[in-house]
Design a protein around this nucleic acid. Sequence first.
DNA 1: TCTGCCACTTGATAATTATCAATCCTAATA
DNA 2: TATTAGGATTGATAATTATCAAGTGGCAGA
Lengths: 215, 215
Amino acid sequence: MESGNFGTLMRGAYVQTFPPQIELVTEGDRSDFLHIVVEGTVEMLASWDNRDTTMAIVRPLGTFILAATIRDAPYLMSARTMEKSRLVLIPSEDVRDTFERDSDFARAVVAELAQCYRASIKNTKNLKLRSSLERLANYILRQQIESEGARVFELDIEKRRLASILGMTAENLSRAIKTLQPYGVKIEGSRVTVSNQKSLLDLAKPTPLIDDPTC
Amino acid sequence: MESGNFGTLMRGAYVQTFPPQIELVTEGDRSDFLHIVVEGTVEMLASWDNRDTTMAIVRPLGTFILAATIRDAPYLMSARTMEKSRLVLIPSEDVRDTFERDSDFARAVVAELAQCYRASIKNTKNLKLRSSLERLANYILRQQIESEGARVFELDIEKRRLASILGMTAENLSRAIKTLQPYGVKIEGSRVTVSNQKSLLDLAKPTPLIDDPTC
DNA sequence: TCTGCCACTTGATAATTATCAATCCTAATA
DNA sequence: TATTAGGATTGATAATTATCAAGTGGCAGA
């Protein structure tokens, strides 16, 4: 974007460091700020009737509630820091103003939004078309790719959270992990070992149209 | 948008009428055209490993694959006419060009995209936080609202498709409908009668953050 | 009017997933 | 080193959802 517009945006912005387990935004609130995670980890949650679920994990450099900011609509999810995190907060109005003024910025916003939308569609396909075991198998494969294909790598979230992301209970995640043993997957603590890639692929049947975050 | 730009877009566009049950776009294909439904009904589907699911129904005036068009990425869903339908097809490249040139158009595209994204998030919440019975109850309430709150109204899609939209089998939809009888819901053919709104609301617990398509 | 197709329904059963309770393990803290 | 809190696991059971196999019924076309 144009550097003058960037300067305007930044002049109105706050940089702030938050302790762990702080609720940054609450489902249903008005969207006053666009949030950008610069450091740390933020969990996006949704709840209904005393149930709740983890919708996503946001890490640097990720944004959240761009859509609510654009539409000036209430947040659909809550956000909570998982660890000490540093965020940039840009007033929603400034974002909307800059969008009008700077076409490069507008293009970037649209690209980001379209990406988020497609990610959400992929997630829906994952939930509706696959069993929980298949979702876990594909999750492991994706994490492996993000670890440059290493045979052994670390899970970067707690299992209870992973269970919620995958739409299952922590108990069933434990059982699903055992079920994957015959497919050459061993998980000890947060250390994952994939000893039979082929058989895991055979079970998971990953496809870019669900599992490739960049496509 | 500016009328000159609109003219340019339309000069490159096709208007075409399709018979029922025609596959308009196929999951995984490149996105050549932005599609706009002018008349009729289009079903959006996704499939994986011999399973498939209905992701959405598009009616006039609705668009589909805007995000794929913007990102020049493959379609994540297939589209199929449910009845004789008339569509406008605009070459994706023209859409991207006009987006650069016309800031009003750009704003409209972003508003539409943000809306689609939020709809998808709401759908995910619906799927992850509610049982199939609760999803059905809320679906009925939403349809009732779209029928101006009438006590009796018609379902506008087949039950098998409704089941797929709600993420359940046709058999279980049948049973869920019977389960709703004590809550004052009767469905005969496609005619729905809600005789005890209060008790249905009590079960469904609708919230704008999931069930209001405009919020 | 008859016929056949297809959506819908129903019942029986199986698979999947959740819940509850108890225990194990680990890591932080006194 | 001992203590403890909370995540993780396990087992038993229940609830939810899917599958399979017959039916039923309505509607379009012959």
